[in-house]
Amino acid sequence: MVMRDLNIGTKVGLSVLNDRWDALVLTNLTVAPMAIMNLRQQIRGLSTLKLLNVLARLTELGLVVATADYQFQLTAAGTHFQHQLQQLEVWGDQMIIDMQ
């Protein structure tokens, strides 16, 4: 079977991986609620407006949830995605070592 295009799930996953802000927010969030300004301080170069847009997108995808007092935390799906990001980092690091 010839595959001419990626399925929708793959496209969604790659769009999150391809956006550095999405990946950085997911990497820095935890399952414990975090104040938005604390998150912003951990990610240099990310404006408050951009962070709010990223959080809204990740919330739509079910990876992040806002608490009643406007703190943010990972959902179970977000935690799983964060783990996948960590595995991708390990794989990438190993590839760099293997190429040397």
Rank of each mutant, 00 (worst) to 15 (best):
R44Y: 05
Q42R: 15
H80A: 15
N28S: 15
N28F: 14
R44Q: 14
V12K: 11
T67V: 07
L14E: 07
L49D: 10
L51E: 02
L63D: 08
L63R: 05
T67S: 15
Q41M: 12
G45K: 08
A77D: 15
R40F: 00
V64Q: 02
T48D: 11
D19A: 08
R57A: 12
A66D: 06
H80R: 12
M37K: 12
D19T: 09
L39D: 11
Y70K: 13
G45R: 08
V25S: 01
R57T: 09
D19P: 02
L61E: 07
V12R: 11
H80S: 14
N38I: 05
P33Y: 11
S47E: 00
T48G: 03
A56T: 09
V16C: 04
A77Q: 12
G45M: 10
V64N: 02
N28G: 02
K50W: 00
Q41C: 01
F81N: 03
L63S: 06
G78K: 06
A23V: 10
P33R: 09
A77V: 04
Q41Y: 10
D22E: 08
G78N: 08
L51F: 07
V31M: 13
D22L: 08
A77C: 04
K50G: 00
L49H: 04
L46H: 06
L24Y: 05
G13R: 12
V65G: 02
A66I: 03
V16R: 05
L55C: 02
L58A: 07
A35W: 05
L24V: 00
R20S: 14
V64W: 03
N38W: 03
L29V: 05
A66V: 04
L63T: 02
G62V: 04
M37G: 01
N38C: 01
L46E: 01
L55H: 04
V31R: 14
L24M: 13
A56Y: 08
